[in-house]
Nucleic acid binder design. Structure first.
Lengths: 200, 200, 200, 200
DNA sequence: TATGAATGAGTGTTCATTCAT
DNA sequence: AATGAATGAACACTCATTCAT
């Protein structure tokens, strides 16, 4: 009768993806069974196939869905900042924070999907490139404003920055006893990269 | 009795590992079968179990064996250099060159081994930490000599540098049409990191 | 209230059976899903279970319904004929014509239903025996009238005649490029059988 | 050391086919599981896949193997006979006898394979046509010798004869309480067909 | 009546591992 | 040491059937 009834159940597709993230993060994609995911999502095995073509599709769907969220968040935050130096710092901080907040998700994306040649080779990874191009944009902006070295190659450095930040995030996620804070890491990385591509 | 017997067969263990590297790089660890490896190594399926405890052990053995080679090579080269700045440049260049030279191996180590949280979690990865500590040592050396910023945290930055270099290498290996040379990448990275941690 | 309501929907049970015939003829009973049939009949999966106990029951219903039609048609036509020789010719011609006219149906009955010993064993096939007995009746009639050999055993020969005609029909249905007409086949068969059981 | 050791175990492929015939005859192809066959053959499930590509291939292999035996036997027997009339009688008798002797096999071939549109459509059935052509040859021979009617079409009648004999065989195999003997059936059929295509 | 989302038992097939030779 | 046939546990996926709406 009223708005409350519109979505009496949370989107089941979403529910399955969330359960899968936990399972995959825990046991790894190849060592998880579809039955594991189903049990964790509290649905029948067959139900998963109503929402996903197959097990691979489930992983890829998680990836795409998450990357959209990541990209949206990062892009939104960067828009409010003018200085490319601050943008780089923000980007790094945000990436680490997001990873911290969504640890299981980060683990699945980084380890289970991005690391798999099967997926990297067979599946054209547009979302990932979109994310990378955010960094490239910032570097180019800085070069145009005369803040960054003309010799800095945005195509190469975007990947280097991503690699560094992502590796930090990976370590941080896998580390049981945290030896440093996300903030420290963000500062160290930001300082290094900003100095590294600064004009002087 | 004569020369023929010197190395009648190359070490069969080695032969299997080399074949496995090719197979795993091509199809991925989880999508390769022990029979695939056996066929490629031109031995019987069962023979593999004379040299390796199981399929996982084969992957780990490849990793340890390769890391030893990597570490030995890098450590040897760095010993001949005095200036920590040059050492960083050398480290970066060498890592990229080694990856270029051993593409299949690099792919397996990077992608297939790191792929699974199973391996990252269950298998204490000493060789990897040893490799990382090489970078850390160089940074500490540079700080002691007053060449690098005191504020630079070697524990954090070793991982960042590794992450950046490794990501570049990964991209380079997976890229079909190479858009830049290993040398360019090495220069870009070296310039950035050296400036990034330099005193001024 | 008005003409529109006379047959607002063709009997839905009939509609499902007709759709099923097409689907089963195309893909085979065991390789067709209930969902296939439902889609083809333009009803929901569950609706099928309002009209049929289960998938098997659907097949058997098709069979019974068709056999009733077959038997009715054949019996009606034979009634108008006096001479047992002509009756045999009519029977053969009619069977082949009916198969030609209802190819999908014929295929399902012949192939898919007989296919499984499950059906042949578990399901007492009264309609089929009724059909067979039509032939037997004609032979007996001919023997009584002294037209057919006394040595001809109607119990055995009814089955032989049916087998021959049905095999011809099966071939004809499965043949893509028709190499002979139904009429030719009917003549050849009729000539053979009539001579075969004739007195002289 | 001697000939006894040549085949210490009966060909395992053969063993599996024989077990499968029993299982398929009992429960039907689609209602039998590979595990059923394995258990019956006293091998592991996986073993079946060392000898057959998949479950379908097992059925087809049974068919081809049996048809070769059938064809060989029939062809051999017919060679010793001169008169085409006697050849037809022999063919009919032999077919019925073979079916009687290999009841399970006959059931599988007739019902499970030949009756399945899936197999009839997808699998070009050379052995079956070879068998049919044996009959055709006999009819043509009889026509050349002036024993059979010129108006008899061998292409059509070979199928009719086969259909009649096969239907008799099917009935006989499925009949629990035998109401007539194989010999009676063979005589009835032979008499009918020989008279049916005879010159006078 | 009709729907179609959900179920979960069932199965073909794969493949790491063993072991008799 | 080496083989490769055999094993059988494991798993992704399908689909007949049900039932809340």
């Amino acid at each position: 009768m009223n708005g409350e009834e519109k979505k009496p159940v949370i989107d089941k597709r979403q529910k399955i993806m969330e359960a899968a993230v936990v399972v995959f993060a825990d046991k790894g994609f190849y060592n998880s069974t579809v039955a594991d995911v189903a049990r964790s999502a509290d649905v029948a095995d067959g139900t998963i196939y109503l929402y996903f073509k197959n097990k691979d599709d489930l992983l890829i769907s998680i990836f795409e869905h998450s990357m959209e969220m990541f990209i949206g968040t990062v892009r939104g935050e960067l828009e409010n900042i003018d200085n490319p130096r601050d943008k780089i710092r923000k980007f790094i901080t945000l990436h680490l924070q997001l990873v911290q907040k969504h640890q299981n998700l980060a683990q699945v994306i980084q380890i289970e999907l991005r690391q798999s040649s099967k997926f990297m080779k067979e599946y054209a990874n547009e979302k990932f490139f979109e994310y990378l191009s955010l960094i490239q944009g910032v570097i180019e902006e800085g070069k145009e404003q005369g803040l960054f070295r003309a010799s800095a190659d945005p195509v190469i450095l975007k990947r280097a920055i991503f690699g560094a930040v992502d590796e930090m995030a990976l370590e941080w996620v896998l580390m049981r006893k945290k030896r440093y804070s996300i903030e420290e890491a963000a500062d160290q990385l930001s300082d290094m990269f900003i100095r590294g591509i600064a004009l002087l």
